[in-house]
């Protein structure tokens, strides 16, 4: 098979993955509708970190996933398998890691987001995030294939470094965790505002917040590593570890926002919805960095490949 054929096959797999993600989204949406209609399950309070210790502790009060959620999850796993296969083939077609231009960042980034969601299932039922995750995957892959697609090209010398493998991959990983954390923060904010319908079947706002925080913290650790690895790479490539290049500025801005978020979680009067907003602002900055900064800002990191 020629490399061009490999790439067409990769694209075909990605399109199929998008189709199946869409089906998964529908299944999850049906489940949400069902939950909204169903009667609220008995609420139980979990004593999380820093939560009041007055109530008897108990397991997370997740409503039993309905058929819609189960179908949604199976479809998500299937779509993810197609997606990862497409991503791997793209890497083979290009003869390198599949994250060297915007199309590939998006492809791998979304695979990581969904992957974190699928794998986290092992320790926690996050099916209530299904609509958010599959919706995000469908939209992002759509934008990536329509607007960012480029045929595979060899790496420019500036990207020929093992730091590409480490730095960019960890950045994508961090993005995956931030996306998940933001999904949880959105649900937390919704739940705080109006606890009815589908929202009633979710864990309590405090639990959502704790979960969002844990996921966000892992993202923050990965982002800190990205920042450090990026500085080391910049030192190798450009002779200075920090030069306030546009991409460096935005990596720093995101890092500082998340540091603010972590502080807010530990501050009286800021825990709760205010800190949730900070996580959302942080993720908005991540998306802005990936799209607008890559496409329209001038700087040394001119690798959008468009």
């Amino acid at each position: 098979m020629t490399l061009a054929e490999l790439d067409s096959l990769s694209l075909l797999l990605v399109y199929s993955a998008m189709a199946v993600y869409t089906l998964a989204f529908i299944a999850y949406a049906v489940d949400v509708a069902r939950r909204s209609a169903a009667k609220a399950p008995v609420e139980r309070q979990l004593v999380g970190a820093g939560a009041p210790v007055d109530d008897a502790p108990g397991p997370a009060p997740v409503a039993l996933p309905g058929r819609g959620a189960r179908v949604g999850f199976v479809l998500t796993v299937l779509a993810w398998a197609l997606h990862v296969a497409g991503d791997v083939l793209r890497g083979l077609a290009a003869g390198r890691v599949p994250w060297a231009n915007m199309y590939e960042f998006a492809l791998t980034g979304v695979a990581v987001i969904v992957g974190v969601f699928v794998v986290s299932r092992v320790w926690r039922d996050l099916n209530f995030l299904g609509v958010f995750i599959t919706g995000l995957a469908t939209v992002f892959l759509g934008v990536a294939t329509v607007n960012f697609y480029v045929a595979p090209t060899p790496l420019p010398p500036a990207l020929q470094s093992y730091w590409l493998v480490i730095h960019v991959f960890v950045a994508t990983l961090a993005t995956g965790f931030f996306a998940l954390g933001s999904g949880l923060s959105i649900l937390q904010l919704l739940k705080e505002r109006r606890d009815s319908g589908f929202l009633r079947s979710l864990p309590s706002a405090v639990q959502l917040e704790d979960l969002a925080y844990r996921v966000g913290v892992i993202g923050f650790i990965a982002w800190t590593f990205t920042l450090i690895a990026g500085a080391i790479w910049a030192e190798h490539a450009w002779g200075r570890y920090w030069g306030w290049d546009t991409k460096e500025v935005w990596t720093f801005v995101i890092w500082v926002i998340y540091a603010g978020y972590i502080h807010a979680r530990a501050t009286r009067g800021w825990r709760g919805s205010r800190s949730a907003w900070l996580q959302l602002i942080g993720f908005a900055a991540v998306l802005f960095n990936f799209t607008v900064v890559n496409l329209f800002f001038k700087g040394l990191h001119a690798y959008s490949g468009l």
Binding site: A259, G260, H263, A264, T267, R268, W270, L278
Partner: peptide
Amino acid sequence: MRTAIVLLLLL
């Protein structure tokens, strides 16, 4: 803590 948050966001 409040000041630290505000200063971080300002930064």
